[in-house]
């Protein structure tokens, strides 16, 4: 292989250079708008109007200080952490419990129950939006955090069930059976055998639930109206979206809205991309 590479023809070299040019072009396209945003969040609005493309002449932090306080960001970030944390933990627990039962406890209902979850993968938020709004109002959960959390958990369930069941099926039946013969209850088997073994797929489900819940915007927007319950995306939209001339502050608010997911992505890059690939199996 080595000598083939060394005797590359001029054509091949041009190809390589072109490939680099194209890849660099796409990379610049992907990150330039984000860099532009960050750069401009450090300019005063007056400077932005005169200098829209260049670096700030003077890097100021005043936009961040303003946006942080006036946009009530501490509250929004806390809320988003609560919604995402509770939804993710509850989704994992409930979906893996059911997935274990579907995969390892024989029952005639499994075909229908599991099937109904799989159909859920194809359902869209749009088709449940209005009914959910009416139902949540009817049961008195409008404008409560529970009224947001229950739908979030239900929406995340199908993927958890689907991936969980597939994975737990691949665990040998003999492990469960021998534990049964030793007198272990199904609960004990679930906690001490299934949960530790299913950890890798649980990470995938957790990551998908975290990204989905953290970025969710449409449902929480219609199921709540109080400031105290807003999530980060809703808060950013209400605050930054309304600033049509105070660009510095708007950009700072957007950067604050962007940072948590950026940190999450850079920390769990490998797991996130694995999750995307796993999620694409559906269909």
């Amino acid at each position: 292989m080595r000598d083939i590479k060394d005797t590359k023809s001029i054509g091949a070299r041009i190809n390589t250079v072109l490939t680099y040019v194209v890849m660099i072009f796409f990379t610049v396209m992907a990150i330039y708008p984000l860099l532009w945003l960050v750069m401009n969040s450090f300019k005063t609005t007056t400077e932005f109007q005169m200098n829209k493309l260049g670096f700030p002449k003077e890097w100021v932090l005043v936009n961040y200080q303003d946006a942080w306080v006036r946009g009530k960001f501490p509250r929004l970030i806390l809320n988003s952490f609560i919604y995402t944390g509770v939804t993710t933990v509850a989704t994992l627990v409930f979906s893996f419990m059911a997935a274990f039962a579907f995969a390892k406890i024989p029952n005639r209902s499994t075909k229908y129950l599991h099937g109904s979850f799989v159909i859920g993968l194809l359902l869209t938020l749009q088709s449940i939006m209005v009914p959910l709004f009416l139902i949540i109002n009817w049961v008195g959960l409008y404008n409560t955090s529970l009224g947001v959390l229950i739908p979030y958990i239900g929406i995340a369930m199908p993927m958890g069930i689907y991936l969980g069941t597939e994975f737990i099926k691949s665990i040998p039946d003999a492990l469960v059976e021998s534990a049964r013969i030793d007198g272990a209850t199904y609960w004990k088997i679930f906690i001490s055998i299934i949960v530790p073994m299913a950890a890798p797929v649980a990470v995938t489900v957790a990551i998908m639930t975290v990204t989905g819940t953290w970025n969710e915007f449409m449902l929480i927007n219609i199921l709540t109206s109080s400031d105290a319950l807003k999530s980060l995306p809703v808060g950013v939209q209400k605050f930054a979206g309304a600033l049509s001339s105070d660009f510095g502050k708007q950009f700072a608010a957007l950067v604050i809205g962007l940072v948590p997911m950026l940190v999450f992505y850079l920390s769990f890059r490998k797991e996130i991309t694995k999750g995307v690939a796993a999620g694409a199996v559906k269909g």
């Binding site: 419990m97 059911a98 039962a101 209902s109 129950l113 109904s116 369930m157 199904y186």
Partner: peptide, 20 residues
């Protein structure tokens, strides 16, 4: 055991996705 494992998740799912 089957039903205690399945029901919590199934009830949530039914009430927020299937029924709506």
């Amino acid at each position: 055991a089957y039903w205690t494992l399945v029901l919590p998740g199934f009830l949530i799912y039914i009430s927020v996705m299937a029924f709506p």
